[in-house]
């Protein structure tokens, strides 16, 4: 279960993973071999490939917040994103997606600015949320990065 580990494969590679900077875009090589997956899913061990907000939600957020956005309750809970007033302004969801919150990991190194904006805007305008005004922009996301 330990995520942290054996990255010797990168020993001879440049060091993007150690910097806070955006990792480079996926190479063409990483796109090969995805015949059995949806067009942009499962493309890399370090980056998400989906560009569309709904696809990003389905691939990432739905794991905890559930496909219907209603969250889940166990020993702890995943909050519902459906009908969630904290989504009214972009700053909060952009910050949470980038930096995480409590037990939720941040995705700053796994999503680029446009992807973060796309998924935030999708959540703000779906799942019973109707915050279409002042959508998040890649520029806003960039400014919110560490």
């Amino acid at each position: 279960m330990r995520p942290a580990l054996l990255l010797l494969g990168l020993a001879l590679a440049p060091l993007p993973a150690l910097s806070q900077a955006d990792a480079p875009p996926r190479s063409a090589q990483q796109r090969v071999g995805e015949a059995t997956s949806d067009s942009h899913g499962f493309v890399s061990a370090t980056r998400f490939g989906q560009r569309d907000g709904g696809a990003l939600y389905a691939a990432i957020c739905a794991g905890c917040h559930m496909p219907n956005g209603r969250g889940a309750v166990g020993a702890g809970a995943y909050p519902a994103l459906a009908g969630n007033e904290k989504l009214e302004h972009t700053a909060y969801p952009v910050g949470v997606v980038l930096h995480g919150r409590h037990g939720m990991p941040g995705f700053a190194t796994q999503l680029d600015d446009a992807q973060v904006a796309a998924v935030v805007n999708w959540v703000r305008t779906n799942l019973g949320n109707a915050y279409a005004e002042d959508p998040a922009t890649p520029e806003e996301v960039r400014a919110a990065r560490p």
């Binding site: 580990l5 993973a17 890399s44 061990a45 370090t46 796994q110």
Partner: peptide, 9 residues
Amino acid sequence: AEQPGPEQS
């Protein structure tokens, strides 16, 4: 756990 090989975080 381990994460061997290329494409690591």
